[in-house]
Amino acid sequence: MTQADTAGDVMLVGSIPHKSIPQAMNMFGPPLAQHLQALPDGEVGWRRFWITRVHFQVLAIHPDLEVIQQPRRDNGIERIYPHDATDNWNFKVRDGVDKIVFGHPGWRLGFYQDAANSYHFFRDLKDKGLLPESVRFQVSIPSAVSAIPPRVMPHKGDLEKVRPGYIDAVRAEVLAMLDVIPAKELAIQWDCSSEMQDVYGGIAGTPAPGGIERNLPQINALSRDLPDDVMLGFHLCFGTLGGWPRFAPDSTDKAVELANAFIEGSGRRVDWMHIPLLDRTDEAYYAPLAALRPDKTRLYLGMIHSMNTYEQRLALARKYVPDFGVAAYCGFGRRDPDELQGILDDHVRAVELLQRSRRA
């Protein structure tokens, strides 16, 4: 097979917990290069802990927000990231503030600065012939609903005061990226975990009905003005805070509904959609995948885990989805760095088995 035949067979969700960007990109980029549409920079450092980085580096220093809880100490020493979902940073909008506005548009959130710095290493891999020119530089950004979930803003009405400002700030950061990264080399991925929890009825005090309607407007606002030359993808997630999965639904039905809604309601072309799968081998769990309406969107099923059942799960998924690529259920940021070689080996093996199943 040529690279054109196999590009899109595997996806890297985002975080790779090495100590440096070159380590992460060099470890996972070249071995998977011919199968990738896009390569992330590993989200090293503080980004390893996903939305928590937004909480302590962005929200905690905003003058119109008050910190009302932060992760408990370890043996009396500060801890920046939570132990579990009960140990989050919590914030309150200060009295008299109607909307949180983030200053310094283009770099206040930190996504632009990280992307601009990492693109140099990505470009170096291409210049050395270690990545095909067709591979994009992937920047994964949590959506507004996931970056600022209800558990982080427990006071009624505060979410609506903070999320619009976050959306404005994200849009400004993506525009800034386009000043240093060619649009034809950039891929933006929206990471969506709270949205999945919402549609499955997993957010306390929020009924599952209406979940899609609650979550779609932010996706349209984030996506609709992205230039056509920029690729757009989605990572839907069951969450890993406190262990994976944070919740384990009995069916893929709501994930399918959410994926279809995001593809159809983003206001522009969606290039890929990632849906995580649990380690389930009952056919009823997979049957709702038949209702996916991807059109030209590349589907990735997050099933590179529990490799002893991988081929069985692959066969079940292929009954309901004619063509798809594979990925892990989430990024690896909360995994031990010593596990990375095994994770990479699983990705290589998973692609081989996927391609073999097509030839069978």
Results as ranks from 00 to 15, higher is better:
M1E: 05
G14Y: 02
G14V: 12
S15A: 15
I16G: 00
S20R: 11
N26H: 13
H35R: 01
G42Y: 04
E43Q: 14
W46V: 13
I51T: 15
T52P: 03
F56W: 11
L59R: 05
A60V: 13
P63A: 11
E66A: 13
Q70S: 08
Y81T: 15
K92Y: 00
D95C: 03
D98R: 15
R108A: 14
G110W: 03
Q113S: 15
Q113D: 15
H120W: 01
R123Q: 15
K128V: 02
G129T: 14
S134G: 10
V135D: 01
F137A: 10
I141P: 02
A144Q: 10
P149T: 08
M153R: 04
K161V: 04
G165P: 01
R171A: 02
V180I: 11
E185Q: 15
I188M: 12
S193A: 15
E195N: 02
Q197S: 13
D198E: 06
Y200P: 00
I219V: 14
F238A: 02
L241F: 09
S251C: 13
D253F: 03
N260T: 07
R268W: 04
R280G: 01
P288I: 13
L299D: 04
Y300T: 07
Y300F: 15
E311M: 09
K319Y: 04
K319I: 12
A328Q: 14
A328R: 07
F332G: 00
F332S: 05
R335F: 05
D336I: 10
P337I: 12
L340T: 02
R349S: 12
L354S: 05
L354V: 09
Q355M: 00
R359S: 10
